Amino acid sequence: MPDSATLDLVSPAFLEEMLRAHTPNSSCKVLAVEPLPLDNSASILVTLTAGQSARPIGHFGLAVTLEEAGRPQTHHLVLKVKPHGAEISGMLAGLAGLCGGELAAVYPTFAERTGFQHTHQRELAVYEHAAPGLMPRIWGTHADEQTGLYCVLMEYLEDVTLLNSVQTPAAWTDHHIRTALTQVAAWHARHLLPPGFAAPAWPDVPTGPYMQELAPLWTALLHNAAPRFPKLFGAQRTAQLQAAIQQIPQRKAWLDARPRTLIHNDLEPVMD
């Protein structure tokens, strides 16, 4: 049975407010909302952070009946309730502490500077302003700094090839991989920024000095991972990564002279 906080989020009044804010000229009215089964297992950050938050977070499948132009229509939608970036940062700091050693000692200094502190704001900004293509239809967003509530109402993806297949990488054929790479390349092309173009005003944008200041964290992460995953971090690769950390200023200067684009940092499931 959903708790009262969840019921408030999936209420017709709340969803109608999101819809009308997203499309001000719309006169749609939410007549009814029914739950739909939804697999949350692929959302690792949400799953791990759920225990850190007093608010309901995660993905909620909904069958939403709208009155549009005087006629009722039912749409299958997903309400994504984002964890606040501070909750994600706290959860990751807890995991780092469990690792012990160098990583546990170093991580607290950088816990709010690893790129997760502002994810609740960045994701909504992308949904509101990104070019169409390669993402579900967005029906509405909601951001409330006072309550820490950040939501996205989006299309429910059904009958999609390889949906939630991160745990079954063998299902990906060569054709699937090439199709995905082609579509991701098109997405990158649509969001390409020329060198020198002003970066978004996030406090954790990875500038050269910012990345250099985090060098102790990158080193601690490498020292923690290499002995635990020797198949992924052999001697040669570990040496290359250590050299890359030492060469951050030169590498960042090289990158800054080239175009940039919008990317998805975890679009990289490991295939053994």
Rank of each mutant, 00 (worst) to 15 (best):
T65A: 06
L241K: 03
Y156H: 15
R178T: 10
T261Q: 10
G140V: 03
N25D: 14
L31K: 07
E112S: 13
A63M: 05
N164E: 12
A13F: 07
P194H: 04
L222Q: 07
P216C: 10
P83D: 01
T141A: 06
Y210S: 01
G51K: 13
Y127R: 03
H75Q: 14
L7K: 10
A244R: 14
H84P: 01
L36V: 08
W187Q: 11
Q242M: 11
V78G: 01
E123F: 07
S53G: 01
T168L: 10
A235F: 04
V33N: 00
E34M: 07
A220C: 09
Q247H: 14
A21S: 15
T168G: 01
G208L: 08
L48S: 02
L255D: 09
T119E: 15
F14Y: 07
Q236D: 15
M211W: 00
G51T: 09
H120L: 05
P83K: 00
L241W: 09
E268M: 14
V160R: 12
A13W: 04
T49F: 00
A111R: 13
W139H: 12
M18Y: 06
L157V: 14
L153T: 02
T238C: 10
A93R: 14
L45N: 06
Y107W: 15
Y127P: 00
V64M: 03
G51W: 01
P132T: 07
T141Y: 01
Q167E: 13
P206N: 04
T109G: 08
L45M: 11
R258V: 04
V33K: 00
T207E: 08
R71K: 15
T238G: 02
I44Q: 13
L103M: 07
P83A: 06
A42H: 05
A171N: 10
Y156C: 11
G133C: 07
T261C: 12
F197T: 14
L162Q: 09
T173C: 06
E145Y: 02
V205F: 15
A226N: 07
A189D: 12
S41G: 08
A239S: 14
G85W: 01
S11Q: 05
H59R: 11
L221T: 03
T74W: 03
I44L: 14
